[in-house]
Design a protein around this nucleic acid. Structure first.
Length: 151
DNA sequence: GCCAACGTTGGC
DNA sequence: GCCAACGTTGGC
């Protein structure tokens, strides 16, 4: 099984939203690398660090679980959606998604600043400067360590 | 709000 | 296929 980090802006969809709705299709990913991770590498049962981006204190706030195989993201065909992609056709969908369920919420946030300052997490892809990928693989040891920090 | 770091688009 | 222009992400 693999581990991941998924980003979400809490104003749009937070860990508390996920806890409430329990399950959520991870729509709106419009980056090929991130799509390929979902399409090719994510498997049911994989766990992901849930990261809040674009907020006062960015950082990891909990854990979500992959509960589906990749399947087409319906918002790519919805003209009114902000995720609409006119170049994607129904018979050849360009964008896919997986469903996540709520797994846990940390007692305390593991902030980006804390992770960057922690020598144990040196080299972790998600915290490198300039990284904008909304989905990144995480090593098992980093995943477990961050969960421990979160409580 | 600014801006660095990327990713994408389109002219050539 | 190159690369300038443009758009977006996301920390600060």
């Amino acid at each position: 099984m693999r581990y991941w980090l998924i980003k979400s802006e809490p104003d749009v969809f937070s860990i508390k939203h996920l806890r409430k709705v329990k399950q959520e299709p991870w729509d709106g990913v419009r980056n090929y690398q991130a799509r390929n991770f979902m399409r090719d590498d994510m498997k049911q049962g994989d766990l992901a660090l849930f990261y809040h981006s674009n907020t006062e204190v960015p950082g990891v706030v909990g854990v979500a679980k992959v509960v589906s195989e990749a399947y087409p993201d319906a918002t790519q065909w919805q003209k009114k959606s902000k995720y609409y992609d006119p170049k994607s056709s129904e018979d050849k969908p360009r964008w896919v998604l997986v469903d996540f369920t709520f797994e846990s919420e940390f007692k305390s946030i593991v902030s980006l600043a804390a992770m960057k300052a922690d020598p144990k997490l040196e080299g972790m892809r998600a915290i490198q400067k300039g990284n904008r990928l909304s989905i990144t693989p995480v090593e098992a040891k980093d995943f477990k360590y961050i969960c421990k920090l979160g409580g």
